[in-house]
Amino acid sequence: MKINAIILLTILILSACGGPASQKEQLSGTIRIDGSSTVYPITEAVAEEFRVVSPDVKVTVGISGTGGGFKKFGRGETDISDASRPIKQKEIDACNENGISYVKLEVAYDGLAVIVNPENDWVDHFTVEELKKLWEPDAQGVIMKWNQIRPEWPDEEVHLFGPGVASGTYDYFTEAIIGESGSSRGDFTASEDDNVLVQGVAGDKYGLGFFGLAYFEENADKLKLVPVDGGNGPVAPSIETVSNGTYTPLSRPLFIYVNSRAAKRKEVQKFVYFYIQNAPALSKEVGYVPLPEAKYKEQTENFSSFLSGLE
């Protein structure tokens, strides 16, 4: 009898401790994310860190592109959609048709820097037209000298450096400057390694290149940043000009869209909060520009009020 009582007591104590406590902390389930391959590195980094916090939540991330991602999102096939542009009317209509509501959250900026050698004292800024003239496919073998871009510039060869044509950075630059993603002249030094680009331009007085803005900061002493005139006067890229949208067209906000039905699930809520909380450090780590602190606070508030609106 005595032994039985002890066993009973033990079981009671164990169940009291184990039950509710573990249920509260051990979230499980699957969170399906798809969309832009530009946003992917951030989402991947967040998912990787989230595994440490909630190992039983399976987060999967696809790269079918912003458009492809929204198609799936609009059919309710994904919980979160990565996007490198805001959702389009056609995609909103598809969501409405299937009774899907969502919240849009900004997570970081994608910014490109146009750079020259510090000894280059003639370039004060580029206009988008000048960059286009220099980089468009027709420029190959034709626009070879600085004075062909602007007559007062030196009669010296211009040496071009840029990321590999498979990179998202290259896609974005060609889309923003030339107007067609993936189309540019071919006679430039292309490297997937940003260090090669940095070394190339840093060691060449007549060099010119572009790469992700986040990488400039680390190499600010070796390179000179060139302001870009997108139509409203030259603007130098910085956290301020990128975040207030004046540095165009070479910067853009990146978003995640959260499905409202998914947002009712505890694991999704935790993941989204975790995302916003860690986006500043992680987005920088993978090569993007974080939002200003106030903006992240705004995203958290947006998501909270979205959640309270659901109930």
Partner: peptide, 29 residues
Amino acid sequence: LAYVPFAPRSPLDDFSILPIQIFNWISRP
């Protein structure tokens, strides 16, 4: 997918494949 933190356990599981992983890595800076 590109990021799946688990190997498939049944034919109905999500999955990634080597060529996609390669494609994804090549586009990183």
